[in-house]
Amino acid sequence: MNYNWNWGILFREPYLGFLITGVITTIQLALIAWVVAFVLGSVLGVMRTLPSRIASSIAAVYVEVFRGIPLLVWFFLWFFVVPELLPREWGRWLKRDLPDPEFWTAVVALGLYTACRVAEQVRAGIQAIPRGQTMAGQAGGLSQAQIYRYILLPLAYRRIVPVLTSEFMTIFKNSSLALTIGVLELTAQARQIESFTFQGFEAFTAATVLYLVITLTVTVIMRQVEARTRIPGLLGQKGG
């Protein structure tokens, strides 16, 4: 195996700058997409538990369609197909006038896809709450909106923090797919360094270490969140 090691390349410009902007782009993309996923996923998750047949079937179809198509295909659909299907002016705006169209397309693709996974968790969280809680709310004269706002959602979110943690980490990893439509996030930058310098080992090692650091940071932060939001007295929780 002949290979010329050159770790110094990672700390030289422009390659150091590539890695830094890559990390920043990955974090921006993941965080903005997460906000989209969390808000939309919560709405869909609630819809699935509503008594209204129409609301729950709309949400069910959304989840089924988004889960049934690979994320990479979604990226291509949002980037190549949707601008063509919209009215001509809208399509032109998306392709020409929107600043940084690749980045915002990636936010939409990643956010709407992750929303279906968040929705399933929120639904499961709400359905795991004993019926008595809802009945007590009704007996106390709360409206349905109030029951969700003050009883069901606070309990459901606290229950599902651990699974949301893993979805949150997944969105950082999935953001790497944005490289296929030209977003220069971390993995794309590592590959760019490889093709400029042929130092693939060093470039991919740097990217791997940076992803591990991101994952570790998220884990540490989410541990704190989990500890603070834990519902006392539930099984499967240390301490409690």
């Binding site: 990893k173 790497s176 992803y211 591990l212």
Partner: peptide
């Protein structure tokens, strides 16, 4: 370790 890495990066690693 593998679960912390994006699959695309793993594919690039093994391609190399």
């Amino acid at each position: 370790g593998l679960r912390a890495m994006p699959l695309i990066l793993v594919i690039f690693w093994f391609y190399l």
